[in-house]
């Protein structure tokens, strides 16, 4: 059995990666990335207008990824849709057989390419998780109206263990889990001390019994990327030690050092009790994912969906 649910059920260390849809009506761009990840990951997140920049929708991206033989995790944010649109997209994902959804509040439009847009935030991330769980398990919309057929996706969410207030972060995830989240992916883990304290808080709160924790990792492959990560990405905390290591090597070795640190991070995370897997964010570096996993000694997931090597448009209207 392949896929995220199967990995969780078997207690196998799960690996997810990220596929950002293109800023154009370009199906090939999605399929190319999926081809690089197929057979190496349990599932791939398809982001929803990441960084508040307009991209192909995550629903379309998820369908394309699924057709290319990779299990999608459809991301859905509260930034661009009110509760009606969110619920209809959740139903659509169910109808198209998208096996996982990842529900989050989303970046504010001020960070993206349309800062003049109206921020919606009709629901917050916790309420969206709650809505999804009620939709699936009770078969009802927020209005109380029953749905004709229930979706079957797994409900995921995100948390940032590194953002203030530090001791509240585990409680915030506990809220999301009580609302219905079954797995969580975290922000990039560079600061292990803070991450381990957060994990300990999760154990204390009993969160780990109900929710699989997938730790976020990713290689920093240049000093420019390091600077960007430090200053421009909301909520990422890069400790000085990471800075020292990357600046301590010759310029032509920064990329390799960044990858090595990522490999070490995966290995270290795999030893932390309660960590059920890693989420490898290697934007624009999808081809490097297999290498990182191989070097970290993470076994490949069992054979995935049959590899059809399909044309991206093939099978439209025959989604699983």
């Amino acid at each position: 059995m392949s896929g995220l649910r199967a990995a969780f059920e078997a207690g196998r260390f799960a690996v997810t990666a990220e596929i950002g849809p293109p800023g154009g009506a370009d199906a090939e761009a999605v399929t190319r990335k999926a081809d690089l990840l197929r057979g190496w990951v349990d599932a791939a997140n398809v982001t929803d207008n990441q960084g508040a920049n307009v991209r192909m929708s995550s629903l379309a991206g998820s369908v394309l990824v699924q057709r290319a033989g990779v299990e999608p995790v459809m991301q859905l944010t509260c930034r661009d849709r009110n509760r009606m649109a969110l619920q209809s997209d959740l139903l659509a994902a169910g109808a198209l057989g998208i096996p996982n959804v990842l529900l989050l509040t989303g970046d504010h439009p001020r960070f993206g390419d349309h800062p003049e847009a109206k921020p919606v935030f009709d629901l917050d991330g916790v309420q969206l998780v709650w809505t999804a769980r009620t939709l699936r398990d009770d078969g009802v919309l927020i209005s109380g109206k029953a749905v004709s057929a229930r979706p079957a996706w797994l409900v995921g969410t995100v948390e940032n263990p590194f953002a203030p207030p530090p001791r509240f972060r585990a409680r915030r995830l506990a809220k999301k889990v009580s609302a219905g989240a079954e797995f969580v992916q975290t922000q990039y883990v560079f600061d292990f001390e803070v991450f381990e304290r957060w994990m300990a808080d999760l154990w204390d709160l009993g969160v780990t019994d109900h929710c699989k924790v997938i730790a976020g990792v990713g290689p920093i492959r240049s000093l420019r990327a390091l600077e960007y990560m430090r200053t421009a990405v909301p909520g990422v905390h890069v400790p000085d030690e990471v800075d020292r290591r990357l600046r301590g090597v010759p310029a032509d070795r920064v990329a390799e050092e960044g990858i090595r640190m990522c490999v070490e991070a995966v290995q270290r995370l795999a030893t932390i009790p309660g960590v059920a897997g890693v989420h490898l964010m290697a934007l624009g570096f999808e081809h490097g994912v297999p290498d990182i996993l191989r070097r970290a000694g993470i076994p490949r997931p069992p054979a995935a969906l049959p590899d059809h090597n399909r044309h991206p448009m093939e099978g439209i209207g025959h989604a699983r």
Binding site: T105, G125, Q127, N160, K175
Partner: peptide, 12 residues
């Protein structure tokens, strides 16, 4: 973001 259930992940 008018969040009613706690802070978002973007707090500096």
């Amino acid at each position: 973001k008018q969040l009613r259930n706690g802070p978002c992940g973007g707090v500096a």
